[in-house]
Simulated scan of single mutants.
Amino acid sequence: MAGQWISVYALGSLLAAIPLTAATRSWRRRPLLLGAIIGFAIANLITALTASFTVALAARFVGGVSAGLLWALLAGYAVRMSPPHLAGRAMAIAMAGTPLALSIGIPAGTFLGLLAGWRLTFGLLSLAALLLVGWILAKVPDFAGEAETQRPSLAEVYAVPGVRPVLAVTLCFVLAHNLLYTYIAPLLAGHGMAGRIDTVLLVFGASALASIGLTGALIDRWLRPMTFVSIGLFLAAALLLAVATGAPLAIYAAALIWGLAFGGAATLFQTASARAAGPAADVAQAMIVTAWNIAIFGGAVVGGVILDGMGAGGLPWGGIVLLVGATGSAVCMRR
């Protein structure tokens, strides 16, 4: 059941991010942001209360649609709220939720679900969303949408120099991440560390959090070099995971390096996308969301094929191939 819910949620984000963002480009930003958060709250509340599996699936799909729109809006909103010279740092703060959710949110939700039941977890998510609505009404300014004369088509945004390389880097990098993260249990079992999954992921999460701070401090001046550093660190981590059989310390080192590479990745890619797209940043962000969710789906599918054909030892090598592709795409990004 949990797998189906996750897949349907991701499918909602994947299918809705681009068309919904494009259709609402002329809308004022704060009402749109509030609508997406309220939709997320309602979807979680229905999930918590319904006894119907079909209704719950539909609610998860709506939750994914809301999340896809939210993700597309956040980067542009952060840039508009900040001075130009601090735009990257503002985006780093806005996008900190991704590694925070991986390192803290998922374990906390799982623990709460085991302690009090999964329905309470979804109910609390709805409550948190409603509190967020109040905070936005009190503190977050509103901005106008795009004027009709300032709205390039989706094809025109896609053709903007620099947008396609960022999308390619995102797809390759996140696909490599999900190859490893989705199948971390068999991968660690192959290294004789089946009982240490929690500690390995804790190291990954802690270093990802540190990466957020580093990214926020450096991104406005060093976006392009940091992108290469992130890919290079991930390549090093994947190589360690590929060759360090029976070496627990090396696996922990790989998790540490992997977390440093991944923690700021969402901010790097979305900042690069926003800079390349200019006024059409929200649509470009929706494309990033779509690429990210394709990579989530693809990580499960491609990882499963590798696992069946080559065993868990083949997963890091698959990641290495993808990261080489990410490096080539990063070379084509705008300077």
Rank of each mutant, 00 (worst) to 15 (best):
A274T: 10
T290G: 09
A265D: 11
G303L: 07
G304I: 04
I296A: 13
G278S: 06
V283K: 13
N293D: 07
W292R: 00
A284V: 09
I288R: 00
V302W: 03
A272Y: 03
S273C: 14
L307P: 02
V301N: 02
G299I: 02
G303M: 06
F297D: 08
M287I: 14
V283F: 11
G298M: 03
D282K: 10
A280D: 08
L268W: 01
Q270P: 09
V302F: 11
L307M: 02
S273V: 15
D282N: 15
I306R: 00
I294R: 07
A261C: 10
V302P: 01
L268H: 04
G263E: 05
A291V: 07
A266W: 11
A284H: 05
Q270R: 09
A286G: 15
V302R: 02
L268G: 03
A295P: 05
F297T: 08
G278T: 05
A266N: 13
I294K: 09
A277P: 02
D308F: 02
R275N: 08
D282E: 15
I288L: 04
Q285R: 09
I294S: 13
Q285G: 12
G303D: 06
F269W: 13
L307G: 04
G303A: 07
A295T: 11
G263W: 02
G299Y: 07
A261V: 10
P279Q: 13
A272M: 05
L268Y: 06
A266G: 08
V305D: 00
A286H: 11
G263Y: 03
I288E: 00
T271L: 10
F269H: 09
N293V: 01
A281C: 04
I296L: 14
G263K: 03
A265E: 15
G299S: 01
I288Y: 01
A295V: 10
A274F: 08
A276H: 11
D308G: 13
